[in-house]
Design a protein around this nucleic acid. Sequence first.
DNA 1: TGAAATGTTGGGGCG
DNA 2: ACGCCCCAACATTTC
Length: 467
Amino acid sequence: MKTTIWWIRKDIRLSDNGAFNEAIEQGDQIIPVFILDPKLLNSESVSDSRLKFMHNALWSLNQQLMKRGSRLILREGNPLVELSKLVRETKADGIFFEENYSPYAKIRDQHIFEELPAVSVAGVTGKHPRAVLKDDSTPYLVFTPFRKRWMSSTDEFRKLNEFSTQKISTPSGIPSLKIPNQWSVPLKGFPASEEEAHRRFDVFLDGPIFRYHENRDILGADGTSRLSPYLRFGLISIRKIYNQIFELVDEISANRDVKSLDIWLYELIWREFYYSILYHFPSVLQESFREKYRDLPWLNNQADFLAWKSGLTGYPIIDAAMRQLSSTGWMHNRARMVTASFLTKDLLIDWRWGEKWFMQNLVDGDPANNNGGWQWAAGVGTDAAPYFRIFNPVSQSKKFDPNGKYIKHWVKELRNVPEKFVHEPWKMDAGTQKSSECIIGKDYPHPIVDHDFARERALSFYKNNSG
DNA sequence: TGAAATGTTGGGGCG
DNA sequence: ACGCCCCAACATTTC
């Protein structure tokens, strides 16, 4: 009788789960365990929404396990200590888990490999970071060639390990924390279950994905998949997503345009790219990838930072996005770029401050992608936007929220402002301010900085301070 | 996955 | 009819 431990981390699902499958293959009895790691949970970069999403996901996984005659073992503490205890208690022969790429995870897992009979299985990304390298075996630093190499073979996505509804045998009497009832209360907007993840993906494939190219940047539209938190915690397998996409491409390419599918696929490959960057260059979590931008003398004005966080900058598009983030834990990707550009270029605040604030609020916050996005926006990372690419918050607003739908949804002070002024309300004359019940400086702030001035300031800041 | 500044072209008004 | 100017529209360069 062999007993195996399935250690659940960023793969909270049963279907197409390599580590789970391996544990099932090797063991007659399976112990599914999740370990609450105080090192991670007490970090400054945890968000309430993300924690809640994770709790919901674990609750839901436990329901699925119970239906199959098993249950989730919940522990709290140092993973090495807890796993060692669990091995002693259960006489388990092996521990199986999905490989993770963050610096903390790599070191943690290294110790576990040294002390315990542990085996890891790749799965966070469709392709392992070591599998997508230049001809000289060094990692790609630019997205487009990375993508081309990544795309050059996709055969490995043709097969999946679908998990049926078979029974799972789990021994009784294994000590476990009680799963709090609270964990069943779903997070608004993102109910966390494997079923919901698959439902969302199916809905997206059924239509929106074909309009993704035209709709994805429209802030007020529902043009994106909103799968990010599900991918973040592995409620759906990325390999399954690639499998379905490539199947769909084959199916329709004869008679329909696949451009939209490609564009969405590119976004997923950005995810692969940033996991690869973090894997090969773990220090990006502490400093700019590009050395010449490591010592920029950021202004770091606390009042400006507070205005940005609270959505009170006086630029409607920025404020709408920042309020969407703090009230829902999610922000449209276009808005992430615009707000990140504003913090770094217009306010000259250290990109790491913004990165941390996003981590503290995002339901999908993940170090690899969040860091990659911020370094890109600040112009200090791999394949970053050059520093002189500065977003204009007004033209971005006019372009991607043409009728102000997104702005008016999140910035109620502007609800009666005429369309003509919704992107730049400070241009309203006194009469219009009065009739739209939006006095600038009273009901809604003046812009905290003049963009034309800020743009020039940013250009000389980067130019003069890059070593 | 930018936007401003600068350059070029061509049509139309006008003397 | 012609030259001149203006400027919108588009293209290219620059930050």
